Amino acid sequence: MESRRPLDNKICCPEHPEASLIEDYRAGDQICSECGLVVGDRVIDVGSEWRTFSNEKANSDPSRVGGPENPLLNGSDLSTIIGPATGSSSFGDSKYPNRRSMSSSDRALIHAFREISNMADKRNLPKTIVDRANVLFKQEICAVSNISKKEIGRCFKLILKALETSVDLITTGDFMSRFCSNLNLPPRVQKAATHIARKAVDLDIVPGRSPISVAAAAIYMASQASDDKKTQKEIGDIAGVADVTIRQSYKLMYPRAKELFPEDFEFSTPVELLPAL
């Protein structure tokens, strides 16, 4: 039974009316902090609802309230996803959920947001930057367009020219100093890598490639021509890009390597002997 004060209808302990009450939401009780008497019940549990099924993995999240809304998704991240069935009534591959109710654009966004989060984790960036990056990606045409990056870049330049304006673009030089420093490369290699990357962009050898991938490929080329050779994996770990991404940019630059190096660069490994990949 609940004990209440007659005037204010407040639940309290009859023996200790001024004592504070402890709310046990799991049990649905209100308990006197002085004597432990249960003075109220049927308290609403405002926490997550949990359940346990014997056929679920031990490390799976048992919360049934779902994830938070994501305003960047077209369906506010509330699309129904049917989980895998088990037993004789199961159908299809129980390893994967049925995602037919989620739009393809939302799936693309979720994948992109995951990649952004992974890159931010490698650089210990705060959540505010991750959120801003997600918003910018959502606003970009690349997220929903089948047009190539090269064509988008060409149209972007035409728009800037038509509007007679300019924007601060991220360039390979924005990454060189940090990447080379973290790789313990000497100044002459950094200078050569910076020259290689800038020349490759100026000659339009790497159209559509990101500044980070071009910078990483330029560092790889410069280091391979010096005594301070670095592998694609070493550079990729520092730059936060995959080995295959570095190779793709490097393969575009390799045939014209002689044009890319500074004239005063002292080769330890001649251009002809650089890795062809």
Rank of each mutant, 00 (worst) to 15 (best):
P211R: 07
S63N: 15
G67K: 08
D264R: 10
E18G: 05
F179W: 01
V241G: 01
V189I: 14
E140K: 04
S90L: 06
E115P: 02
A58W: 09
T172E: 11
D77A: 15
P17D: 03
S88L: 15
G40E: 03
L72V: 07
D61R: 09
F91S: 12
D131P: 00
C13G: 06
S20K: 12
L163T: 12
C155K: 15
L125R: 07
V241Q: 03
P211F: 09
A242G: 09
P270G: 13
C12H: 04
V167N: 07
I196D: 02
R64F: 02
S226W: 05
V201R: 07
K157P: 02
R247G: 02
F261M: 05
N182C: 02
N70Y: 02
A108D: 15
T269Q: 05
C142Q: 13
G75T: 09
I110L: 11
P126Y: 00
E259P: 00
P68W: 09
K157F: 10
G36T: 03
N134M: 12
G66A: 10
A218K: 07
C35K: 06
R99P: 01
C32P: 01
E23D: 08
Q248C: 04
K258N: 05
G173Y: 08
T86N: 01
I170P: 00
V241A: 03
P71I: 12
R5D: 11
T128A: 00
H16I: 09
P186N: 03
V135I: 08
D174H: 12
L160E: 15
S88E: 13
I81Y: 13
K10T: 08
S33Q: 11
N134R: 15
E56N: 15
A276G: 08
T128K: 07
D174A: 13
P255Y: 04
F113G: 03
N98S: 13
A222L: 04
R114Y: 13
T80L: 05
S105N: 14
T165I: 03
I219G: 01
I22W: 06
P14G: 11
I152K: 00
P270L: 11
M253P: 04
A193T: 06
Q190F: 00
S177G: 03
S105T: 15
C12W: 01
R123S: 05
D93T: 14
P126W: 05
K150T: 10
W50L: 15
A143C: 10
N134H: 08
T171E: 09
E56M: 15
E15H: 07
K10R: 15
G208S: 12
I44E: 14
I152V: 06
A225W: 04
N59E: 13
R4G: 00
A216I: 01
I205P: 00
Y250D: 00
D174R: 06
R123D: 00
C155F: 12
T128E: 06
D204E: 14
F137S: 01
E140V: 05
